[in-house]
Design a protein around this nucleic acid. Structure first.
Lengths: 242, 242
DNA sequence: GTTTCTTCATATGTCTGACATTTAGGATTT
DNA sequence: AAATCCTAAATGTCAGACATATGAAGAAAC
């Protein structure tokens, strides 16, 4: 059923070959790859072709290049921050290109957030609580734009996720939460909506402060159902759009 | 504190410029970009430089290229499958390069899986149940290698996640689950361990069949604690390694 | 008139060779 | 001994050329 082995571009092949070497551990973090000329000779291609392959890898943050005498391409240490960014752009595109409904994205997001609620209740630090309170303070400002409100919302929920104290969870979830921001930005929040959300945010922060997993969970559940209902009522009329 | 605005490579700038156009909606899915020569003229650079920029975008699955008279670079429709692959490679690298402990990764994974357990219990289809049962059948074969056992485990858990019926969740979680496989492969499973895991898998499948969220959750919880204890006892002696 | 074949224009894929720029380290000078 | 200059090596960029794939227009056959 699949296409009969159309040989890919040379640059793609070379990129895959080097990628395999990195993933397979034959090239370690910090290692320097052979120079472009040497690679060209090894793979029996020209330098521009090698360069295209290297650019592909650079786009995935797998390598970084340095100019100069001792320069070259080095296997990059993929930091959480870089991985975050990649995940956010991928997730954002995925959501925007596949006509994901707000409802489905919202369900996924709150399912994931509730997954780390118990961990957050057990491990939250003072500093993380302060962040939550600070964002609540921002969200209660009367003249805040919708965009700023959403941005603060993202920060709040990221802090909530970070409070779980598991970097892998933070990485996975930050992508999901931030990717939803464009969708959230489509919603205009009335003063009354903001009050309700603010109340639930406060409830969450209180529950975390008292290390109360059940309270955190129920507040998140309420927040989810309120957000989804709000979106349904606001977005329903414009559903016939592309 | 940040580096003083070192201007990036031309190819990186051009790639970013086109990326912005795609993310910002000025280029829509299916749109054809100008030809390489035209782009070279627009950005006042040479064709190889444009090509390096395009390869960067191609590496992120943002565009796809076609040869021939009506060929060119087209804005790609980012499918779930492609997004999956990207996420898996990113997650795998992240885990391997940051010396994530098995324990932390495991905690994250089961937290996420438990998040979709209630949804799966409510929505699982007959076909998904059959997949779960089939994998349980595979896992009960006596002469299965550890790798095959782990691979089947991944399939089982992916089916569990898919049963939640939320593509966004599936996308996020499949990455997390598959990225853990290299870590899982470091564990050797005794016959007794396999029996226990198999029993818990059966328990999960049964609970899903009866649409029992609590049962699913408790089985997953037990599986998590068993897996983490198993890993602790097996991997602890070799902790002083790199 | 319709179908089939050929030709052609156009675009990507690749190669060659060159020059520009950055950078570390050695050679030279003070 | 220290500061400076020089050089070599590597990436970054350019120009032009040829190879190859592919859809479309035009020509030939029915």
């Amino acid at each position: 059923m699949k296409k009969p082995e159309r040989p890919a571009d040379l640059s793609a092949q070379i990129a895959q070959s080097i990628r395999d070497a990195i993933v397979g551990g034959r090239l370690l973090v910090g290692d320097r790859l052979p120079s472009e000329s040497e690679l060209a000779e090894q793979f029996s291609v020209s330098r521009p072709t090698v360069r295209e392959a290297l650019k592909r890898l650079a786009a995935q943050n797998l390598i970084r290049t340095q100019r100069g005498a001792t320069g070259g391409a080095f296997v990059n240490h993929l930091s959480y921050a870089e991985a975050h960014n990649q995940q956010i752009t991928t997730s954002t595109l995925l959501l925007s290109m596949n006509a994901i409904s707000f409802d489905v994205a919202c369900e996924a997001r709150y399912a994931l957030e509730r997954a780390c609620a118990p961990l957050a209740a057990a491990r939250r630090t003072r500093a993380q609580l302060d962040t939550l309170r600070a964002e609540i303070g921002i969200q209660s400002r009367p003249r805040l734009t919708d965009e700023a409100f959403c941005a603060s919302d993202v920060t709040f929920h990221r802090a909530l996720v970070d409070a779980a104290g598991n970097p892998v969870l933070s990485y996975q979830l930050a992508g999901a939460v931030e990717a939803m921001q464009p969708l959230m930005n489509m919603i205009t929040f009335s003063a009354r909506s903001r009050d309700i959300i603010l109340g639930l945010h406060t409830e969450i922060a209180d529950a975390l402060e008292h290390r109360d997993p059940a309270g955190t969970d129920s507040a998140l559940l309420e927040l989810e159902s309120y957000t989804r209902n709000l979106a349904r009522s606001l977005l329903a009329p414009r559903a016939a759009h592309s």
